[in-house]
Design a protein around this nucleic acid. Structure first.
Lengths: 338, 338
DNA sequence: GCAGCGCTGGAAAGCGCTTTCCCGCCACGC
DNA sequence: GCGTGGCGGGAAAGCGCTTTCCAGCGCTGC
C-alpha cells in the first residue's frame, strides 16, 4: 500500500516535457502550448491517473479551492437548506466546501474563521445568526478583517452591517406582514415565543411583528424568550400556558420552535387552531406536510444559500453588496379566524 | 489590503530563533525545546497573530487536516443528522470536514472522492447509500482503493463489503422487527413503499420486512417503488391508492417517504390510522412532533455519524471493522390495531 | 581523562506545484 | 540581410512549512 501519489514531475518526465509545460497543460494557464505536446501530456496524465495535489497548488498559488460554510447546527433544517444552496453553487464552480458548526456558541464562529484562514479558503459564508454579544462580535469582526485582508471574501446570511456582502431576509418586514395577516383574522391577544434576546434574527422578527400589531392597533404581545430550537419552543409554550395570559394567537419566531410549541399545546390539550392559532417563520420544507399545516413566512432558504455563495464567488467590487430577499406570508391550517 | 499573512519565518526571526525551532514549538513535535526559547516563540507568534498555513503543512507532512463527508442531499434529515455526528467528532479532533453532495447521482461519489484525494484528506466517510449500479460501483471502488493507497482511511455508513470500515444499521433486522410488530396489531394486508430498487438500503429494509411478514405467516406485501424522497413517497402512495389493493397497513422504507405518503393519503381523505396504518424508518428527530406521530424504526443517526468518524479517525488495524447499530421499533399513533 | 552518549539548536533539503525569466526560433518589415 | 517582436518551451526560484542531519555541549562511566 501507500504507493505514492503520481506527481506532475512524473507525468512531465513520462511525457517527455518540462514541468512547466505539464503544469500549463493540466491547469488553465494563459500560456499557449502546442497541440501535440498538450495532447501528449493529457494522455500521460490520464494513463498515470494523475491527480494534482491541491495543497501544493494552494501553496504555490496562495489561494485554495476551498470555501467555508459556517452554521450553528447542520441538523436544523434552516441551516441545512442554506447549506444545500451553498454547496450546489460551490460545487458547480469546482470548489469544495468545508463545513463548520458552532453548536450555537458564538465564539466558535471566530475560531472556525481562523481555521478557514489557515486553509487559505478563498471565501466563506457565515450563515449563523449574529448575536449582540459584544466580545464575540468584535473577535469575529477581527477575524473577518484578517480573512479579507488575506484576500478571501466573506458573505453573511441574515446579518447585515459587518461590512461584508450580505443576503438579508426580510425578517422585520415578514414579521410585520404576518402580524397584519393574523390581525385580519380577528385575533386581538397575541403571544410571541421570541427566541434568545441576543439573536438579532429573533429580535428583528419580533420587532417586525410588534410593528405589525401596532399597525393594526393591537396591544403589544406577551413575549417569552427561549432557545432557538424545538425544545426552546416547547419550553416557551409551556411557560406561556402557565402564565394565564389568554392569547388567541401565538407567533413562534421559527418554524422549528413552532413545532415544539405545538407539541406542548397538544400535550396540554389545547387544540390548534380552535383554541389557539399558531404561526412560525421560515417555511421549512420538511415540515410542510405536518398537520395542522403551519402558517408561516416563507423564506427561499436554498436560494438564499445560492445567492450568498454567488456573492462570495464572483469577484465583485469593493463595496459590500446587500441582497434582500422577501418573506412571503403563507396562511395555512394552524391559524384560524377568531 | 492584502497584508500578507504572517509566516513562520517571520515569527522565527522576530523571536531570534531558527525556523526549525519555531516549527517545533508551534506544532507538536517529539523534540524538546528549552523553556525560554519556547516561550519566546509562543509570545511572538501570539503578538504577530501567526496562523500556520494549512496548505504548506499539508504539503510538508503529506497529509492534511481535512476529512471528507459525502452525502446525497444535506437537506434530507437522515443525512444532516449523520453529518452532525461526523462534524462533531471531527471538529473535536481539530479537523475540518469538507462536505460533498452527490444530488443522488452515484457517479458524483467517485468524483468527490477524487477531489478529496487531491486535497489529501486524511479520511472520508461515505454516507450515501450504495447502489447496485455496476459501473458507478466499480469506479467508486477504484477511487476508494486509490484513496486508501494514498494513506487515507474510508468509512461507510450503511454499505458493507466495500472493504472499508463500516457502520451498519440493522436495516434488515429493523424491517423484520417492524413487520412482526405490525402483524401483532392484527394487520393482514400490507403494502410497502419501497424506494428505488437499486438502493441496497431500501432493498434491505424491504427484504427484512418481507421476512418479518413471513415469520408471522402473512402474505407478501404489495411493493411500489419510487424515489427515496418525500415526493417519491407521495407518488408511491398515490399509485397505491389507485391500485385498488386494499392494504390496511403501509410501510414506507423511510420516514421522509412516509411523510409524503401521509400527505397523499390525507389528500384523498384516507384517515390515519383509522383507515390505514403507516410506518416509516429512521425516526427523524425533526418529524417527531408530527400528528399523528409516526411509527418507525429508530436509528441513532447522529451516533452513527460519530461512530463512522471515530472509525475513520483512529488508526485502527488493517482489517475492515464493522460496527452494527440496532434499530428499535417505536410504535406510535400512526399505526393502530386492526 | 577521555570516549561516548543524550540533548538542544540550526542549516538545509525537500514536499508538489506555479510562474517568472530567459532562450531559441520563426515570421516580419525595412 | 538583419534587427524586432512574438511565441512556445524549459530552468529554476520560490510558496511556507516539516524533518533529517549535523554540530556543539555537558555528562557519565571506565
Amino acid at each position: 500500500m501507500s504507493a505514492r501519489q503520481v506527481t506532475l514531475a512524473e507525468v512531465a518526465k513520462q511525457a517527455g516535457v518540462s514541468l512547466a509545460t505539464a503544469s500549463r497543460v493540466l491547469n488553465g494557464s494563459t500560456r499557449q502550448v502546442s497541440e501535440d505536446l498538450s495532447e501528449r501530456v493529457l494522455r500521460t496524465a490520464e494513463e498515470l491517473g494523475y491527480v494534482p495535489n491541491a495543497s501544493a497548488q494552494a501553496l504555490a498559488r496562495n489561494s485554495s479551492s476551498l470555501v467555508g460554510l459556517v452554521v450553528h447546527d447542520i441538523t436544523d433544517p434552516y441551516f441545512s437548506c442554506i447549506a444545500a444552496g451553498v454547496t450546489r453553487v460551490a460545487e458547480a464552480a469546482g470548489l469544495s466546501v468545508v463545513l463548520g458548526t458552532t453548536g450555537r456558541r458564538p465564539e466558535r464562529e471566530a475560531e472556525l474563521l481562523s481555521t478557514l484562514r489557515a486553509h487559505r479558503a478563498r471565501a466563506v459564508v457565515l450563515a449563523g445568526s449574529r448575536t449582540t454579544d459584544r466580545a464575540a462580535q468584535s473577535r469575529l469582526a477581527a477575524e473577518i478583517d484578517a480573512f479579507t485582508e488575506q484576500g478571501g471574501r466573506v458573505a453573511c446570511v441574515s446579518q447585515a452591517k459587518l461590512g461584508t456582502d450580505t443576503v438579508v431576509p426580510g425578517n422585520r418586514a415578514g414579521g410585520r406582514a404576518l402580524a397584519r395577516a393574523l390581525a385580519e383574522l380577528g385575533h386581538k391577544k397575541f403571544a410571541v415565543l421570541g427566541g434568545p434576546s441576543e439573536l438579532v434574527v429573533a429580535r428583528d422578527r419580533l420587532a417586525g411583528f410588534k410593528a405589525g400589531l401596532a399597525d393594526a392597533g393591537i396591544a403589544p404581545p406577551v413575549v417569552i424568550n427561549g432557545a432557538f430550537t424545538r425544545d426552546g419552543g416547547y419550553a416557551a409554550a409551556m411557560e406561556l400556558l402557565g402564565s394565564k395570559s389568554r392569547s388567541t394567537c401565538v407567533f413562534a419566531v421559527t418554524d422549528v420552535m413552532a413545532m415544539g410549541a405545538m407539541a406542548a399545546l397538544r400535550e396540554r390539550g389545547v387544540r390548534i387552531p380552535e383554541d389557539i392559532s399558531i404561526a412560525g417563520f421560515d417555511d421549512i420544507p420538511t415540515l410542510r406536510d405536518t398537520v395542522p399545516a403551519l402558517s408561516t413566512v416563507r423564506l427561499p432558504l436554498e436560494e438564499m444559500g445560492e445567492i450568498a455563495a454567488g456573492l462570495v464567488l464572483d469577484a465583485g467590487g469593493d463595496e459590500a453588496r446587500t441582497i434582500r430577499v422577501a418573506g412571503e406570508v403563507v396562511l395555512r391550517a394552524s391559524t384560524a379566524h377568531n
